[in-house]
Structure formats: C-alpha cells, structure tokens
Design a protein around this nucleic acid. Structure first.
Lengths: 229, 229
DNA sequence: TCAAAAGTGTTCTTGATACACCCATGC
DNA sequence: GCATGGGTGTATCAAGAACACTTTTGA
C-alpha cells in the first residue's frame, strides 16, 4: 500500500437500471436531467454516494428520491471507471439494476422537477454520460441471469397467469417457447402455488393465477435444486 | 443530482483475487502486509486507485507492483462498500479476480518488503479487512463461470494434457467427472488443437498435449455455440 | 513384471423438442 | 356463433450418465 490515503480521490456515484415489464415489452425507467451536464437528456436514476452510507443504501436512496420506488429487487451490476465518462471530472459509478412490477408503478413522478418515464428497450433515447453502456451491460446480465435464477417473478405482479410468465421470458430472452413445454417445465419445478383465482380480461377463457413460492424455492435450492428455464 | 460534487468522498481501492492451479489444488496468491492496519496479516494484492487511471488500469498496476504479474486474465468481480470495512475510514474497494498459470509463476516476490505466497483454497490464513468475503465471492464467481466460459485454460500452461484439464475442473467445481465422458464432451466441442507432443512425467504412458484454440472458440461463439461443461 | 496413468465405445436413461385439438368466455 | 386466448398429452430425438478393459511407459 504505497499510495497515500490522502491523494485526490475520484468522486463516487451510484446509478440504477430499473427494469419493468408491460404489454409484452421490457422497459427501462429513465429520468430527464434538470441540471448540467447533459441538461434535458434522459439518464439513469442515480447520484453521488454519501460518505456515511453503504453503496447499496445509496442506490436505494437515489431510487427512492428520484423515482419513489421502494422495496424493490436491487442488485449490484458493475462498476464503471473510465477516465472520461463524466465531463465534470473523475467520477466512478457503481451501477445497480432493479426489477419492479411495472403494473404496480405505472406513472412514477420524481420528487423534484425532473421528469421520469418508462421506455421500451429497443427505443431508448440518447442517454447522458456512459449510461448507454451501463444499460447494455444490465440487459446482458438480465438476459443471462433470468435463465438460472428466478428473477422473472420480480417483474410480474404477485399473482400472475402462466401466459404472462411465458411472454415475459420470451421478451427477455428474445426467443419463442412452446406453450405446453413451458408449462410442463415450470410446473414440474414445483415452485408455483396455484391459486383459486382467475383473471378474466377479455373475450376468452379466464386464466388461472399462480404465485411464486419463494420459501419453497429456497428450501429446494438448499437441497441442490437449480432453477433453470 | 441533488448532492454536491464537492462533498467528502470515500477513498477508492482495487483488490485482486489471483487464482492459480497446481498439484490438483486451486490456490490464491496473498501478500503479507508490511504496514498498519493489519500489519503482518495476509491480504489480497491491491491498493488505492489513482485519479488519472481507469479501474482496470489500477488493478493491473497493483498486480504488477505487488506480485510482478503481467498480461494475465483479469476481470472485475464486485465492488465492496460496507461502512466499516476499513478501520482507516470510508474506503470502497473494487475487487477483481485474475487467473494465472501457476506453473509459469512459481515463487513470486513482491518488489517491496512484503512477502507473497500461494495458499491452497481450503487453508487460507485469516485475512485483513473484509478480504475473506471478497475471496468467497471470487470463488463463487469462478465456480459458476468456469462452467459456461472457457476460463479454465487461463489456469493451465499453453500446452496441457486432458487429464490436467479434467483435474482442474474437478477441483474448481468440486465434483468428480467420468474420464470418458469428459474427453468425449470437450473434444466434441472442437476447440482443442491436438499437438504432436507428449508429456512424459512418470512411469506410465505419456499423455498427448493439447492447446486451446481461442480463435476457433471466438468463431464458434459467433455462430451461436456455447461453451459448457 | 509391476505400478501408474493414458486412452477408448456402447448401453441406458433422462430430459428436450415437436406437435394439434378442445375449452371457457365476451361480444 | 365466432373470435380469443387458456389449457392439455404423447411420440421422437438428443444429450448425459454409467460402466471396464487395453496400452504405454519407467522403475
């Protein structure tokens, strides 16, 4: 440790890629910047980490402050430290990604003047800083991880139909899945609790609703089971 | 962005978990600290990030300075930002993990007074700071990633026998693999180039040597192929 | 000639894939 | 009664798992 603790330090920020799912589309929550640099541009919610809070706490605080989101799935993604990523000087950003039930948070207003809006993934506006890179990394992570961890449920309401789940997986992994095989596989895992409730939302047979049984998943996992789709 | 760029900042360090493989054992390279705090304790190579270098560059520089390692596989692991992880104050550490051919770097002396040594994974000494946590995370990542990315070859010499590769996989994933099935599968992937060289190292039949064909792997991957063991 | 690791195929089992029709509802 | 999405079973195919003996070398 040859370099002093007192040398000039990079600034530290946290940024959050918030994923939501709606209408067969994967979406991302962006806020419009009210200040320079990149004033008026869309950007990831985030900001400077305080010296007296952990990184996770900083991410949750910024999410709460800028998007009113609370108690969501949040996981560290990657830390971006290129020299020129912020025109104000040296700023290192610890990026997080969050998964939220978009139906439960339809139009989220920020507490300050900045606008917030959901954008479908393929149609993102130009982003501030290196946030485009961060989003790309988050999408890559989500695509990979959704296959072997039960993350998808975080993007759905607590009660959901199997077809919703399937549509979600098809959207995230950009594939199309056979309906019968999908249902067979997910039900065989035995982590979904069937409910005696049905969602009637159109001129067709109502779909049975299910709930993800988190406790059972944890128990199965302890016994060597691996979620995989 | 409501919090000033001028607020007190956490210090930023990088730490490296260096993996090596030798003698059927997975090992980690540690250095013994010459300074307080934790003077005399074993720790991960690392140190403060300079303001004028990227995080990756900082990790490579520290690795070079403290262990003389250069041109090794290096990838960002996770960023550790708990409030109390460093007794000197608020220090956030961006952790990396490196994979090196241990046979090519047997006894690595640090450039300064600190000692450096390889420790087999299950027998690590008590570590400074939260480095135990960092190692645990690195091991978890390596175990998972070695199954679907060709990382294992980074831990072996350029020319290796199939039995070495198998032993490596058995050590990393803590499983035992059937010899015939292993060879069938890895050879079927068609990413190993058989050499007309043989390693005679004992009173038994010499093993044919192979080389990992990185270019071919990249090409296959582009065509949708996925490495998996 | 013995010990020690290298090398080699086949069978069986399991999981993945492909595929088509009836059901319940609202309009 | 028709349009819409919900719900169901079987046959085929491919990949993974299990398994034992011969070969080459040095001591």
């Amino acid at each position: 440790m040859r370099h002093s603790y007192k040398f000039p330090r990079p600034a530290l920020t946290v940024d959050c890629v918030v994923f939501g799912f709606d209408d067969a589309k994967l979406k991302i929550l962006l806020i419009q910047r009210g200040l320079e640099p990149f004033k008026g541009r869309w950007a990831l919610p985030g900001g400077f980490a305080h010296i007296d809070e952990s990184l996770d706490a900083a991410a949750r605080r910024e999410l709460q402050e800028e998007t009113s989101l609370q108690d969501v799935f949040l996981e560290q993604l990657y830390t971006f430290g290129a020299l020129d990523r912020d025109p104000r000087g040296r700023v290192v950003s610890v990026a997080y990604y969050a998964l939220v039930d978009l139906a439960g948070h339809p139009a989220i207003g920020a507490t300050d003047a900045d606008a917030a809006a959901w954008f479908p993934l393929p149609k993102l506006p130009p982003l501030a800083f290196d946030h485009g890179r961060i989003v790309a990394k988050a999408v890559e992570r989500l695509r990979a991880k959704v296959r072997y961890e039960p993350l998808g449920f975080e993007l759905l309401p607590g009660k959901f139909a199997l077809s919703q789940l399937q549509t979600l997986y098809e959207a995230v992994t950009q594939s199309s899945i056979d309906k019968r095989n999908f249902r067979k596989k997910i039900l065989a895992m035995d982590v979904l609790t069937p409910l005696n409730e049905f969602a009637a939302q159109g001129a067709h047979r109502p779909a049975q609703l299910f709930r993800f049984n988190h406790a059972k998943y944890v128990a199965l996992k302890k016994g060597g089971f691996n979620f995989e789709l």
